[in-house]
Every structure is written in structure tokens, then in C-alpha cells.
Design a protein around this nucleic acid. Sequence first.
DNA 1: GAACGCAATAGTGTCGACACTTTCTTGACG
DNA 2: CGTCAAGAAAGTGTCGACACTATTGCGTTC
Lengths: 257, 257
Amino acid sequence: MTERAETGADSDSSVANEAETRRSADSSERAYLTIRKLLVEFKLKPGERINEVQLSRSLGVSRTPIREALNRLASEGFVSLTPNRGFFVRSLSTEGLLDLYELRSIIESAAFKLMCERADDSEIDRLRQYWEAIVDVYPNQPPDIILAEDEGFHLLIAELSGNPELVGQLSSINARIRFIRRIQIEHPSHDKAQITSHSAIVEAAVKRDAENGAKLLREHIEMTVSATQQALKDALLKVFAPDNGAELKRRRRARDA
Amino acid sequence: MTERAETGADSDSSVANEAETRRSADSSERAYLTIRKLLVEFKLKPGERINEVQLSRSLGVSRTPIREALNRLASEGFVSLTPNRGFFVRSLSTEGLLDLYELRSIIESAAFKLMCERADDSEIDRLRQYWEAIVDVYPNQPPDIILAEDEGFHLLIAELSGNPELVGQLSSINARIRFIRRIQIEHPSHDKAQITSHSAIVEAAVKRDAENGAKLLREHIEMTVSATQQALKDALLKVFAPDNGAELKRRRRARDA
DNA sequence: GAACGCAATAGTGTCGACACTTTCTTGACG
DNA sequence: CGTCAAGAAAGTGTCGACACTATTGCGTTC
């Protein structure tokens, strides 16, 4: 047996812990949410190496929950792991983004078709109600709300498909493209066509017109994609080059002066 | 020198490597693969609670890499995590299995269509060659080989779609249903119709007949599903009730020092 | 004899420590 | 002046320890 690590001495002795010493048993979960938020908000930048020690310090927990969170984020595609070098923020190139949107489109249109086949009338009506309840105020909300409501709409379709796997996949995809969707919503390119799309989709659902609805969804998403292209470029520029237009890839020795 | 992490080598027969060069950051990875294998082979049974200490002992590593592996497996859907109670083997009901197959079908038929649009002739030819190279010996191989070759075939279609996300999704799905596919292959219900299916799919690919190929794929998978139903039931019976018909849920008096 | 607690046990969640790798710094050499 | 090597520093990967929570087992009460 390895008899190392016997600092036996009264272990903690740390700060006077009156009521706050409780090790909440959800550090990992909070770390997960927090880090994901950092990623979504570009606080951690694409390609950047993630420093576990620094993160753990700033979240006030040890590295263990940080690593658990990062592992989850890795299998969800947010970050990548290189042995002995650690976690890196996975950069989402325009290309990679298109791939994700394509996957989303595939899943959503399939979900719509399944919903048409399987959902009963009251369920379809839930979709209609969901949309009608928000359609009027929809465009005037703050971006975060718009985003949440939009995701909710699409997610509800997935739920009504009756296949929980689709819901899971879509949630995961949504999380990964959320940052760019928010950017797009705040970008001037965001317009109201999306609203009409949703209404048309609801209409197709009510009529159980699977083919047409799926097509509308595909177009809806494609529209979003192209509207997103410019927004993405602007965002990347802002993130990488606050005051200079250098290449994105080179990042050596950027300090002098 | 504390000789830590010495092979431990017990429990499983999984031969490790013998390259002594540098073994380092792969405890987690090995734990991941090993545990996933245990799951796939029903060594860890659906619904069962996973004991980290026990696992870590039998793999000869500490709990840390075990937990990292379990976290990954959790976000891939193999296991679930209940706070303060630990990880549980996610039971795959017949229903859940159908959902997975449905997702697979969606992704594969979409991949096929994309492949028809995007792959160039030489790529399509790679698919044809892949299949022709194995078609003759295919049915006479051991189950593991058949399984790998079949997965390879479908995965190649995903690759030729040009969308790496599809490849990732399909791989993940494959891993989750692998155990049941193996069971099905070994089950009497396994027949040679699958071979003809593959040939027809290749043919459609060569002709770039997206619609027909996608339809063939859907049917191919549906056929597999129904062939799998009985196999699944048999397998579950074997796993849960080797010699008695007790309920599945109750499990008392399993103490052992 | 069954329901109810209460003590003992088992097991997870998190921590700090440390070995080993990678990266950075510095100084010798061409 | 630039190149390379050795050492220092930073950082990851894994470990054992321990606090806290869930579960089991036992004795008490009705």
C-alpha cells in the first residue's frame, strides 16, 4: 500500500465555518451550469485552453466538480479533451455550425411528422395554445425570453412526437447553438419572419399536414441559418479582435508593448 | 517510490496493452471503455445501482476516474445519476429501445439523402467496395465481426453525408444498442435478409436514388427492430431470471462480506 | 407481532495533496 | 543574434481521506 499523503494533521482548520461550511452536494451540477453559461456567453473563447485551477478558484469549489462538469460538457460537444493537456473550448466554425443546424433540421422535421401521426387532438391543441399565448407579445420581449420561448416551441414539437430520445437530442443541440441564436436575436438581421413561420407551422400541425409542416420547419431553420451567418461573423470579430483585425488562428506572442 | 496504479489486472480478461512506454492519462479512458463494455454485455444489469467503490476496486483504480467515466456515460444515456444516490444502469425497456431505433432510422435515412447529394463518385464507390469486399464472407463470421462490419457499413454512409455530427450521433446510438444487436445476431431470428438489404442500399447509392435508398434503410431498420423484439425478451429473461421467476425489482438479502 | 424510530453501516460528493507532463524561462553555445 | 537545453513553473491526472446522506439492522413501544 502506498503510504503517501498522510498530512494527517487536523485536516481542515480552515476558516471559521459557522453556517456556511455546508458542502452542498450539487457542486458539480452548478459547475456544469456555470461553465456552460461561460461558454455560451463567449466568456470562454473558442479554441482557448481551460484552466481548471483558475476555474475552480473562481467558482469556489475544488477541481473535482469542475472536472466532472467538463467531462459532461465534453461528451456534449462543448469542449474537447486532449490527454495531458486538458480541456479546450471547442471552436464552432461556420462549417461546424451548419452541421449542427442541419442535424437540428433533420430531427425537428422528423419530430413533426411523428407528432402528426401520433399526437392526439388535445396535444396538438397544446401546441396551438402555447403559441397563441405568446405570439402577440413575442417580438417585444428581451432576447433571453424570446430565445426560451422559441426553444420551448420547438421542444414541444419534439415532446409531442412521443419519442423522448428526440427531446434529448434536440435539447443538447439547442444548448450548443444557444449562444449563436442569442447573438442572432440581438442582431439587426433578426426580423419577424420567424413569427409567421411559427404560425404556419402550427397551422400545419392542426391540419396534420406532416409533409408541409416538415418542409416549413426545414425552411424556417434554413432561414435562421442564413440570417445567422453574418451575425456569427460579427460576433467572432468582436470576440477575437476588439481593436485589430488580425487572423483568428495566430495567437502567439500577442503581448509586447 | 509509491508504486501506484500497478496494473491490478484482475476481474476481467480484457488484455491490456503491453507497450510500457508511457502510461499516463488513460485511467479514465480505460475505465470508460471497460464500464461501457460491462453495460453492453449485461454484466451490469438494467436498473441496478452502480457501486463506485466496488467498481474501482475491480478495475484497480481509484474512484476518480470511475466517476469521470460514469459522468460521460451519463450524458451518453447509458446510466443515470440521482443526486446523493449515485449512478444507476439505465434500463432499456422495449419501448426505449424502439425510440432509439427510431432515432437511428431518422438519422440514417437523412444521412443517405445527404450522401446522395454531396458525395462524389469515388466516395460512393468506397461504399460499394466496402460492401463487396465483405458480402461473400459476411454471414459466416463470428457475431462480433458481423456486428462491426454492419456498423461500419452504416457509419460509412453517415461519413459520406459530409456531416460529422451525424457520425457522432450514430456512433453514440450504435454503442447504446450494440448489446441488443449482438443478441439479435446470435438469435435464431437472425436471417440473411439483412444482406440483401445492404446490397439494395448500395445499389440505390450508386444510382443516387435518395428517396428509394432512404426508404430501404428505414425498412431495413424496421425489419431489424421486429426481429429484435423476441430476441430482447429472451435476453431479458435470461439475464433477470436464470432459475427463478421472481419479480425484477425486488432484490434483497444480497449480502456478502 | 407490526410500526416506529434510532444506531450502525454503506456509499456518494468533495477536498487537498502529489506524481508526472507540458510549457515557459533563462542561460550557454554556435 | 538565433538555437537549443536544462531547469523552473504551471497544469493535469489520480489518489486517499473525510463529511454528509441514504440505507440497513436492531431494539423499543404499543
